[in-house]
Computed example of a mutant assay.
Amino acid sequence: MKIADADILLVPGLGDVPAGHWLNRWRDKMANARFVELPGGHAPVFKAWMDGLVEAVADAQRPVVLVAHSLGVLTVAHAARHFEHGKVRGAFLVAPPDLGQTDPAPHFDTTGFHPRPTGPLPFTTRVVASRTDPSCAFDTAHEMASDWGAHFQDAGESGHIDLASGHGPWPDGLISFAYLMKTL
């Protein structure tokens, strides 16, 4: 599938997405990419995030490919069973968080987001995780990908794959995303 043939929905994580973050850069590069509006970015409410994502997918005019970061990854995994069958063709899930870890413990109400869903996602999925992500152990991220029937990609020692860890443009991620699109 060509990028131009899909609606690319960007699902952010907790908080604001800084201007230089790779999600913003990708939105600026792809005319058909847009952020899913999720209320209360710093104090997310599970039902509001789920409803916002399900509504955004339903409103899309073309096949959907989801690109999610951090808490957005868990939102996609939870919402997957609520999407219209076949509407979402793929998902590129980056830096999934482990909300069950205690150090550092999540600083928001995780009700609904945790525990994470298990079972295969109903669309082609790639999970990208770092060996040095403070929000999720590498083995746990690998387990999530396995549970979801996803291809797992080792991003090396890349922190949380965000602006703070030096991932503004993130060209390797864009190449990986393009490869996912070719497989759809």
Rank of each mutant, 00 (worst) to 15 (best):
Gly90Glu: 09
Asp5Leu: 08
Phe108Ala: 05
Phe108Met: 10
Gly100Thr: 11
Glu157Asn: 14
Trp148Leu: 07
Val45Lys: 05
Ala129Trp: 09
Ile161Lys: 03
Ser130Asn: 04
Ala137Gln: 13
His69Tyr: 05
His85Ser: 14
Thr125Lys: 02
Gly166Pro: 08
Thr132Ala: 09
Ala145Gly: 13
Glu143Pro: 00
His78Gln: 06
Arg116His: 15
Trp170Ser: 04
Ala48Gln: 11
Ser130Glu: 10
Val94Asn: 02
Ala31Tyr: 00
Tyr179Pro: 00
Ala31Arg: 09
Val54Lys: 02
Ser70Cys: 08
Lys29Gly: 01
Met30Phe: 13
Val127Asp: 07
Ile3Met: 01
Leu163Lys: 01
Gly41Asp: 03
Arg131Asp: 07
Asp59Val: 00
Phe35Thr: 05
Glu157Arg: 15
Lys47Ala: 14
Trp148Gln: 07
Ala105Lys: 15
Ser176Tyr: 00
Ala91Val: 07
Ala19Met: 11
Gln153Gly: 01
Pro120Met: 04
Pro104Asn: 05
Met1Thr: 10
Pro106Ser: 01
Ala164Thr: 13
His42Gly: 04
Ala150Gln: 09
Met50Ile: 15
Phe152Gly: 08
Asp172Trp: 09
Pro120Lys: 11
Gly156Ala: 10
Glu55Pro: 00
His21Ala: 05
Pro18Asp: 06
Pro117Met: 12
Leu180Asn: 10
Leu184Ile: 15
Met50Arg: 14
Ser135Met: 13
His78Trp: 08
Phe113Trp: 10
Gly90Cys: 07
Lys2Ala: 08
Pro169Leu: 14
Ala56Trp: 07
Gly119Pro: 06
Ser130Arg: 07
Asp139His: 08
Gly168Glu: 15
Met144Tyr: 15
Leu121Thr: 06
Thr124Ala: 14
Ala164Met: 13
Val76Tyr: 09
Met50Gly: 04
Lys87Arg: 14
His107Lys: 10
Asp5Pro: 06
Trp49Gly: 05
Asn24Thr: 05
Pro96Phe: 11
Ala19Cys: 02
Trp26Phe: 14
Asp59Gly: 01
Leu71Val: 08
Leu93Asp: 04
Ala137Arg: 13
Ala141His: 05
Phe108Gly: 04
Leu184Asp: 02
Phe152Glu: 11
Gly13Asn: 01
Arg34Met: 04
Gly156Met: 06
Ser165Pro: 09
His142Asp: 10
Glu157Ser: 15
Arg131Met: 11
Val88Gln: 06
Ile3Ser: 03
Gly119Met: 03
Arg89Cys: 11
Val64Phe: 03
Met30Gly: 00
Leu14Asn: 02
Arg89Lys: 15
His151Arg: 14
Leu10Gly: 02
Asp7His: 04
Phe177Trp: 12
Leu93Thr: 07
Thr125Trp: 05
Gly166Tyr: 13
Ala48Glu: 13
Ala155Tyr: 10
Ala33Phe: 05
Arg81Gly: 12
Pro44Asp: 07
Asp28Glu: 13
Gln61Pro: 00
Phe177Glu: 01
Ala56Gln: 02
His42Tyr: 07
Glu84Phe: 00
Gly15Asn: 14
His78Asn: 06
Pro117Gln: 12
Gln153Arg: 08
Gly119Arg: 07
Met144Thr: 01
Ala80Asp: 08
Phe35Trp: 08
Pro115Met: 04
Arg81Lys: 15
Thr75Asp: 05
Thr124Arg: 15
Pro117Tyr: 12
Pro117Asp: 12
Phe177Asn: 03
Ser70Met: 03
Ala91Tyr: 05
Asp16Cys: 03
Val127Gln: 06
Asp172Asn: 07
Gly112Ile: 13
Leu53Gln: 02
Gly159Trp: 10
